[in-house]
Amino acid sequence: MLISNMEVVPGKKITTHLGLVQGSTVRAKHAGRDIMAGLKNIFGGELKGYTELLSESRDEALQRLSEQARTLGANAVINVRFSTSSIAAGASEIFVYGTAVIVEDR
């Protein structure tokens, strides 16, 4: 599955548009990490636990996006966009969407 956030795929031609595909996931971090983050809020610096958590969720959302595209029979997803929102204290939603297409070698 080719995933790209451009409107065109270099060297390939888009033959069919299959419409919007999306993937999302809501994750919360565990209390231990929250306490560590509270301490970090005094000292400053990177929150490695959160960075990992968010990139894991992003991978999960991308996974769901490409699964959905696969069921539509697409071989690429273009124009991919990410969106993050914190829906409650300690939980955030990662949403990713794009256009499923079929591309062929030119």
């Binding site: 790209s4 451009m6 270099p10 060297g11 970090k40 809020n41 400053g44 610096g45 990177e46 992003r58």
Partner: peptide
């Protein structure tokens, strides 16, 4: 830029990401 120049027309393409969470200090 939204479109790559013609020079890149035979390149493969894929999504890349980078993320970071940085905390404020007191």
């Amino acid at each position: 830029d939204r479109m790559p120049p013609i020079h890149f027309q035979n390149h493969g393409s894929t999504l890349v990401t980078g993320s970071v969470v940085i905390s404020v200090d007191y």
